[in-house]
Amino acid sequence: MKIEVLFPEYANLFGDMGNLLYLKACLPDAEFIETAMNDTPRFMDEPVDLIYMGPMSEPAQEKVIARLMPCKEKLRELIEGGTCFLFTGNAVEVLYREIEDGNRKIPGLGLFDLTAKRNFVHRHNSNFLGKFEGMDIVGCKSQFTMAYGDNAQMYFAKAERGIGLNRDTPLEGIRKNNFIGTYLVGPLLVMNPPFMRWLLTLLGAEPSLAYNDAMEQAYAQRLKEFRDPLVHMEKEGDTNQLKIDFSPKAWLNSLKSKRNQS
């Protein structure tokens, strides 16, 4: 099995290289190909089983767009043909129609008819609980952008708590055939054992997880927290503090929480 990791020297933020660490633990015989910015992507010349790209800085996004632009038609062909992709964090934005940065519009590869709008003044940080193929998906978001456009026919997961592509939709990320692009970081594969099993099956591997019990224990703890209405799902980006809610409902919840604790 061949897994191509695109531009790891740039696309390596937010601990999402942990996705690869876990893939390596579950697929010890797989070949991991790390494609650097000045290299030709391996998928251009030979079939690969999974193409992975992680989150990157905003200047790096522009480098990646320039680097992948000549590969645009090949990428379209692979997505249509059912090759597995996993793009996490803001990696998926390079495939959008464009990224807006104030008055500046950065054209993307245009494989998905979506736009990402950057807001460097307010960073969005939140937790996510949603459903994908009947599985509970948990993850975190940490981003300067919100995405806009219609993903109703191609979303990755539907939020039960947290937000989708933007605050007005519960539909998170993109799934087209076996392409999955999601803003969820955390890392996604480590945080979601059921999803990891699904991915391994899709890759034609045995769906048995490394460190299964420890993974399930951490997953169960997080699910319990995310389902608790008293657990805040969003934080202030600039201060890294929790949003303070002065509403009567918040006071009531706080009292309930104290009673439960006692």
């Binding site: 937010f14 601990g15 999402d16 290289m17 942990g18 660490l21 940080n125 937790n127 975190c140 940490s142 970081v185 955390g186 890392p187 480590v190 997080r222 927290e225 995310f226 008293l230 657990v231 805040h232 799902m233 934080k235 890294n240 503090q241 929790l242």
Partner: peptide, 15 residues
């Protein structure tokens, strides 16, 4: 803060 009221993003542990 997260320990008391939310759930921490632990991505940084993988760095």
């Amino acid at each position: 803060h997260d320990q008391a009221h939310s759930s921490e993003n632990i991505g940084w542990l993988y760095e």
